[in-house]
Design a binder for these strands. Structure first.
Lengths: 362, 362
DNA sequence: CCACCGAGGGAAATCGATTACCCTTGCCGA
DNA sequence: TCGGCAAGGGTAATCGATTTCCCTCGGTGG
């Protein structure tokens, strides 16, 4: 009885017999592989129109398609773009990935998507694997600091950081939200409505987008005379923002004077907090209101209690592709590309809000 | 001024200078590339322990990592597994993708994820590209019928269909929910509670999972004497299930005797329907209750009005990897792998339900 | 008439890793 | 002592596409 490995090989060989190669195309067209290759790649002045047509016919008849592997080996560069996402289970990241994929496709590139689970070792493993694949570029949606990232940066690889700036070099190409600006916008709207007592829920703040969001929020509040040091902040254990939000809200509820408005540094945190608040018998947004970041596309449908800063997911793909072209065109360190955010306020009135009730809209 | 293409090439060359090759390792260790390769691949009886150690040292010192491209070219098979998802924006698909990625990683394989947007032409383009990449297998999460899919099947490629059976050959390897069984389970629970008047919301039923869910539901209801022909069904335009659900629910609301329980063939449909119902001033689940499929992980947090058949996302990865191994071990057509579903009922009492109110749980 | 040029196209090197095949050495049984 | 075998290791072919040289043939300016 042959071991499994042998049967594997058998099946591979069997399959391999079917993909036509450039040599077969050339033979059928009666030209050399060099000429066939040149016709495919549109090299000028290297083939009569008649010859070219013979090659194209052969390609059509054989159903030939250039093998990406041979091409990548010779060119030392594949058509793959590696995308490393910090957490695919987060719907807003999945939406960004989807947008990236669509835009890359328009450029004839292929996305290879990984999930680093926010872990430096996993990210390293993937970065190394991507480099071994000779990817044309790597897009890091939420990067963490790691050795292989340093290697890639030092080697001059094309890198684009999305949603979270390069933890190792703030001047690396960046596409994403103006996190500080988004935090500031929430501050502005709160102040506008006379809300000064808030609480903050966050997950890890170490070099994450949340860090900048918080900074922008506090800076603006402080500028308006709010004592930000007195603002209660809570967090929860773990990487899962929802669970962290649930526990953080529990902490917040134990406070003597629980703030009526809670700013969560991501929508997922707000989801967890929402459940905790409801379990405590609180009405949302009557007793406690929530602000979040990302504005997941499902919010308008099933979470209309959540005010959130919208990140326009479908703008990411085009923006990132634009950044890639700038880099490929030789630009050394292009300006960060900040996508326009927009705060959607779904609560008619916030608890603790002063001033007249706004009129009902159309 | 050189055209952009030249500058591109320059940057490529610059980068290429840095990746060490097997030849360099061999030179440094004072052995031939053949020996170095054999040490790396653990070929027995082909190197002294002392020689092997020299090679390993050289590898460490150079930071060498085998280039996937050369290897793939020679072996005629890469370590990439292509995953083609029908719609990444659907959180439950993203969760499945995440699970697949994690499991593949455990096998030393790399996931390349694409989004077919439910379009046959896009799926074709990706299948062809994946085959050109010499992927080891393709996993289709929600496949549609397409020519390239037929080619791949005929060529003997390793294919696994997830969540939606192969539209071209029902006996192809399948991993996913027992859709008909899940539909039947909803029927059972409804009958148990004496609910017989229901409505159904669906998107496209053509060869989709919804088709089988509906079949299972109706078969069981019919077996219990319900006139399924009289059950109102509604749908909405477009591929976006949420929007379709919203419009479908609008249709349902115009009915003279609107059914109090609505079965939606996916959670997303239910989300859209939920908003429509609330816009109509209905209480959920007081006036109208919803059943869905997929049970998105966020449901317990922010959609506790939704009863849904849980698809255990994290079981997909291991199940699919198991299926892959069966195929690679030579099994011709392994039995479908049906994941256990579980209906989560979050409504204490359904509108239209007869019988005593169940006691409050612990 | 000759040198030169451009178009058209072929032969072969090349990319990096794997592997079929061959060679040497030492050891063992006959 | 000889044949055979296994271990250890090198040489070169190979995978598929690209690209660098090179060759040939007409035409053309000097």
């Amino acid at each position: 009885m042959p071991p499994p490995a042998d049967r594997k090989r058998a099946s591979r060989t069997e399959r391999a017999s079917l993909a036509p190669s450039l040599a077969q195309v050339a033979a059928r067209a009666g030209v050399s592989v060099a000429t066939a290759s040149r016709v495919i790649n549109g090299v000028a002045n290297k083939a009569t129109e008649e010859t070219a047509e013979r090659v194209r016919t052969a390609i059509r008849e054989l159903g030939y398609r250039p093998g990406s592997v041979g091409r990548a080996l010779r060119r030392r560069e594949s058509r793959i773009v590696g995308v490393l996402a910090a957490n695919l289970a987060n719907p807003s990241m999945a939406a960004i990935a989807s947008s990236i994929e669509w835009s890359l496709r328009g450029e004839g590139l292929v996305m290879s998507l990984c999930d680093t689970h926010e872990r430096a070792d996993v990210q390293d493993e993937y970065i190394r694997e991507m480099r071994a694949q000779l990817v044309r570029a790597m897009i890091l949606v939420g990067a963490v600091d790691s050795p292989a990232l340093d290697e890639a940066r030092a080697a001059g690889d094309t890198l684009v950081f999305v949603n979270r700036p390069d933890p190792g070099d703030p001047s690396s190409p960046y596409v994403g939200l103006d996190n500080a600006g988004a935090g500031a916008e929430i501050a502005d709207r709160l102040l506008e409505r006379g809300v000064r007592r808030i609480g903050v829920l966050h997950a890890s703040l170490d070099r994450t987008a949340g860090h900048w969001r918080l900074l922008g929020l506090f800076d603006r509040l402080a500028a308006a005379g709010v004592d930000t040091a007195a603002i209660p902040c809570a967090t929860g254990p773990g990487l899962d923002h929802i669970v962290a939000g649930y526990h953080a809200m529990g902490t917040m509820l134990e406070l003597a004077d629980r703030p009526p408005v809670i700013v969560c540094l991501s929508d997922l945190l707000a989801y967890g907090a929402y459940r905790r608040a409801r379990e405590a018998g609180l009405a949302v947004p009557g007793d406690v209101a929530f602000f979040g970041f990302d504005d997941n596309p499902i919010n308008p449908w099933i979470a209309d209690w959540l005010n959130s800063v919208r990140v326009p997911s479908d703008h990411f793909g085009p923006a990132i592709v634009g950044m890639l072209h700038r880099l490929w065109d030789g630009e050394e360190r292009p300006d960060p590309l900040l996508l326009t955010h927009q705060l959607t306020i779904r609560n008619r009135r916030l608890p603790g809000e002063t001033g007249p009730v706004p009129p009902r809209g159309p």
